[in-house]
Amino acid sequence: MSATLRAILAHTIRNQLRGRAVPGYAAFFFAATTGLLQFGGGPTRTLPSLASVILLVVPLVTLVIGTVGFYDGREFTELLLSHPVSRTRLFMAHYLGLVLPLGAAFAVGTGLPLVTAGLDSATWAPALLTVAGGLLLTGVFGALAILVATSVGTAARGLATALLVWLGLTVLYDGVVLMGAQAFSAYPLERPLLAAMLLNPVDLARVMVLMALDAPALLGYTGAVFQDFFGTAAGALVAAGSLALWIGVPVALAARRFRRMDF
């Protein structure tokens, strides 16, 4: 890591930790995980519910904090760019300055109650995968947030776009896929459905986490097809790999937009 990148990153993270959003995010997951463990009766029963919370909340919060933060920080970005800093480095500092604190807050908030609740040999792997799934989603939606913020001119429209992305990928997508599957139920649908699954990072994370939990009822329609096709172990690897692509491609696109932006 270059000295300039480290300098910006250190200050961005310090700034984040002093704000209310990131500590609040950690507190939310701490409370949610603790609550679910209290009422859910142990990690095995709690993890599927926790996963559902994670799959909705991590994308939403990361998108909102990421886009709002980018627009809020535009003048500061401009100030940094008036110094000898390359745009690529500053972009990476922005991205890491967003996902590292959020990822850490999430990992602490969920991990701490899980560890204190006592994980045994049967639950530590699913618990680890659940947290890992949340971290990967943080990486994906952090990149999407910056892609939206660098592509849409004003903060209000950017935030609206981010919310549409969230609604589309978490809520509408599965419904549309299901409707499509019904409409074309006379045809072999396995491959189109797999493709549909790989095109949605939330579905990928859901499959990755829920396959490990051995909770097929929660997999959803596309998830069930996926598990059938790949089997559990290979499926988790394919899902994690696809999520990595879901991080890499938006990061590259956002970096390109950032390099060409006018401030």
Binding site: A3, T4, R6, A7, I8, A10, H11, R14, N15, R18, G19, G73, E75, F76, E78, L79, L80, S82, H83, P84, V85
Partner: peptide, 22 residues
């Protein structure tokens, strides 16, 4: 710049030392 908006949580000293590093 004309109307700079520095990050509100930082102090001028921290901002300055960050730009020195940069």
């Amino acid at each position: 710049p004309q109307l700079p908006r520095f990050p509100g949580n930082l102090t001028p000293r921290e901002l300055t030392s960050m730009l020195d590093d940069l």
